[in-house]
Simulated scan of single mutants.
Amino acid sequence: MIKNSIPLNECETDDHVVIESMLIQGVMRRRLLDLGFVKGAQIEVLQKSPLGDPAAYRVNNTTIALRKEESSQILVRKA
């Protein structure tokens, strides 16, 4: 893990974070890259479902819901 980085799923609602790296591989990685989940991109945590999974995030004016399985593999730092 990169120093001072945390998994995206550990962020709270209304947090603004910056992507440090992604550990996801395969088709899901490609899909997230196409949506703008690239190193240095800013993400806003919009809301989490009552049980915490999935959660809604905004990146490049796009809102996407990710399950904990995916968001735990995206490492971020506070913006």
Results as ranks from 00 to 15, higher is better:
73 Q>W: 08
12 E>C: 14
72 S>Q: 14
70 E>F: 08
19 I>F: 05
30 R>Y: 12
25 Q>D: 11
49 S>D: 12
2 I>V: 13
58 R>D: 07
57 Y>W: 00
8 L>G: 01
28 M>Q: 15
53 D>A: 08
53 D>G: 11
74 I>M: 01
26 G>A: 12
6 I>F: 08
38 V>C: 02
75 L>R: 10
51 L>T: 15
51 L>S: 15
27 V>P: 07
62 T>W: 05
72 S>N: 09
5 S>N: 11
61 N>M: 06
37 F>S: 00
45 V>N: 04
45 V>I: 13
23 L>H: 15
4 N>E: 13
66 L>P: 02
23 L>V: 09
43 I>L: 09
21 S>F: 08
76 V>E: 00
17 V>P: 04
56 A>L: 09
31 R>S: 09
36 G>A: 07
70 E>H: 13
38 V>E: 14
29 R>C: 02
36 G>T: 03
74 I>F: 01
48 K>L: 08
42 Q>F: 07
15 D>R: 01
62 T>R: 15
41 A>E: 10
37 F>R: 02
63 T>L: 11
72 S>P: 02
54 P>W: 03
50 P>T: 08
18 V>S: 06
76 V>R: 02
70 E>Q: 13
65 A>K: 11
36 G>L: 04
22 M>C: 09
74 I>W: 03
32 L>Y: 02
41 A>D: 07
12 E>Y: 08
72 S>T: 12
76 V>K: 06
35 L>H: 04
54 P>L: 00
61 N>E: 10
20 E>H: 02
54 P>Y: 04
16 H>G: 05
41 A>C: 02
59 V>F: 03
55 A>L: 09
66 L>R: 02
74 I>A: 03
28 M>K: 15
25 Q>L: 15
49 S>Q: 11
14 D>N: 11
33 L>N: 08
49 S>N: 14
2 I>N: 15
76 V>G: 04
60 N>Y: 10
1 M>S: 12
47 Q>V: 09
1 M>F: 05
70 E>V: 01
17 V>R: 03
60 N>L: 13
23 L>Q: 13
56 A>T: 07
52 G>F: 14
76 V>D: 00
79 A>Q: 05
45 V>K: 05
33 L>W: 02
32 L>A: 07
62 T>F: 05
38 V>F: 06
20 E>F: 05
